[in-house]
Design a protein around this nucleic acid. Structure first.
Length: 473
RNA sequence: GGUCCCUUCGUCUAGCCCGGCCUAGGACACCGGCCUCUCACGUCGGCGACACGGGUUCAAAUCCCGUAGGGACCGCCA
């Protein structure tokens, strides 16, 4: 085991979203690649917004993606005492102070500052006061250095320099005694022995203050790597209004975890021209030097392509198991195992997601099919009627109902009539599926089943004789 | 507004650190051919980018400076 230890620290205020999942993936891969360990920590210090339901959803999504953690989940809400002790230490050491500025006053100052000079920061009013009543409501602030610079040695961006004068004294403890994010992160990362803090670059400007806290707490620094963010099509930070952004929603839409993992890792990381990676390969290949510096736009089409790819690669048995719940969700009876096997095999190249696959299964599991009028007009013609009747006879007499068994008599009929396969297949296809597009004609007829095939053929022949589809009832 | 980050095809990216192998490569999407009972898959081909302006150099996507554009953060949220 190397010394590497990374962590993923989501706040349970919603589902695991795409951006968080990618950060988690990077942390996971980095730890695994270096033979280190990966910690999961739930940052639920905001009691108002944190829910158990979110925590469960996040854990579920992590497991579904295959990002297994070695330690945790730790819950910050259960570590309040630890944080208080550290605040106390800072207070004793003179590295923190009590501040009783009323929030309304702070808000007002912020507003004025924004309008006049744009430097929005706490003015340090209480920094040198000694008369703040510890019994009255107050917050505890960090006493940051006023001069000099703090530099973040970022593994991805090099040295990023901040003037200490631009950094105000952040709140460590709220007036209700609850600790604040920037503080607990540091305390926990120290206590948990995190060696590499890998997170979104929206945290980059927090980092100098966190570094000051490490120093005040007398602890060595971890290495930092701020990875680029994921943007929506409008190039704004990806959020709910961009549509489906939770890992869960992709799972429900019939995406495979390996597709999502593959997609996420390639958003910001690359390995030459390679596009397809298994999780095992990623563990082998992933490192920070392949990670870029610029934000990337979420591209649903590429995700879809990857999903289609993995659907095509998926072992048959697993694919059947994956497809089953999607079919059942539509109310389909999938107890016929042979039918399911064929269905999944013929639809996997035609459906980019499991949900699409289930939707395309409609003609084979629903008694009523909708007839595309354009298709009917073109193929269910009076000339086609006798052919459809002959096909019905042929299928009625078929000794065995299997795609391979249906083919020879069909071909014989075509030959006898001097017709190309297509001339016979298209009217048949429209008759049994209602549309001009479907899998191979023999598989299609097999999937429709003998009973429904005869039923639909009879109806279509009737329609064809009368010169086209009846007007809508 | 202040601070910080970023900038190669529409999108994800290779190349940049260590200038010439770049006529800038790959992938998604899009367009067309082939395959073919339809659709899809597959396959072959096409379209398409170094943000701009200055330098440095025999030579710059690659190094330097400036400009523009985009983003993040600026909370008793995380």
């Amino acid at each position: 085991m190397s010394g590497v230890k990374t962590r993923f620290a989501p706040s349970p205020t919603g589902y695991l979203h795409i951006g968080g999942a990618r950060t988690a993936l990077f942390c996971y891969l980095y730890a695994r690649h270096h033979g280190g360990s990966f910690v999961l920590r739930i940052e639920d210090t905001d009691r108002e917004r944190s829910t158990e339901e979110s925590t469960r959803a996040i854990l579920d999504s992590m497991e579904w993606l295959g990002l297994h953690w070695d330690e945790g989940p730790h819950f910050q809400s259960r570590r309040t005492e630890i944080y208080r002790e550290h605040v106390e230490k800072l207070l004793q050491a003179g590295r923190a102070y009590r501040c009783d500025c009323p929030p309304e006053l702070l808000d007002a100052k912020r507003e004025i500052a924004l309008k006049t000079h744009g430097k929005v920061m706490y003015d340090g009013r209480c920094r040198d006061r000694t008369d703040v009543d510890p019994a009255a409501p107050h917050v505890v602030r960090f006493r940051g250095p006023r001069t000099g610079q703090t530099v973040v040695h970022d593994l991805l961006r090099g040295d990023v320099v901040f003037e200490n004068a631009d950094l105000d004294d952040l709140v460590l403890l709220r007036s209700d005694g609850g600790p604040m994010y920037n503080f607990v992160v540091v305390v926990d990362d120290i206590l948990m022995g995190i060696t590499h803090v890998i997170r979104g670059d929206d945290h980059l400007t927090n980092t100098p203050r966190q570094i000051q806290l490490y120093e005040a707490l007398g602890s060595p620094l971890p290495r930092f790597a701020h990875v680029p963010m994921i943007l929506g099509e409008d190039r704004k930070r990806l959020s709910k209004r961009h549509g489906a952004t939770s890992v869960e929603s992709y799972r429900e839409a019939g995406y495979l975890p390996e597709a999502l993992v593959n997609f996420l890792v390639r958003l910001g990381w690359s390995h030459g021209d390679q596009e397809i990676f298994s999780l095992e390969q990623l563990i082998d290949l992933f490192d920070l030097d392949g990670v870029g510096r610029s934000a990337g736009v979420f591209n649903p089409e590429k995700l879809l392509w990857l999903n289609a790819h993995y659907l095509k690669e998926c072992p048959a048995e697993r694919l059947q198991a994956l497809a089953r719940p999607f079919l059942e969700a539509r109310g389909y009876d999938v107890s016929d195992g042979r039918k399911l096997v064929v269905l999944v095999e013929v639809l996997r190249a035609r459906a980019p997601t499991l949900a699409d696959l289930a939707a395309q299964a409609a003609p084979y599991y629903e008694r009523e099919v909708s007839l595309d009028p354009a298709a009917a007009g073109k193929f269910l013609t009076p000339e086609a009627a006798p052919l459809l009747r002959e096909l019905a006879e042929l299928f009625r007499a078929a000794p065995e109902w299997a795609p391979e068994a249906l083919e020879p008599p069909f071909r014989e009929l075509a030959e006898r009539r001097g017709l190309k396969i297509g001339k016979l297949a298209q009217p048949l296809r429209v008759a049994v599926t209602g549309s001009t597009a479907s899998p191979g004609i023999f598989e299609t007829v097999f999937l429709v089943g003998r009973e429904w095939t005869l039923e639909r053929l009879a109806r279509a022949a009737g329609l064809a004789e009368s010169g086209g589809p009846a007007p809508a009832a």
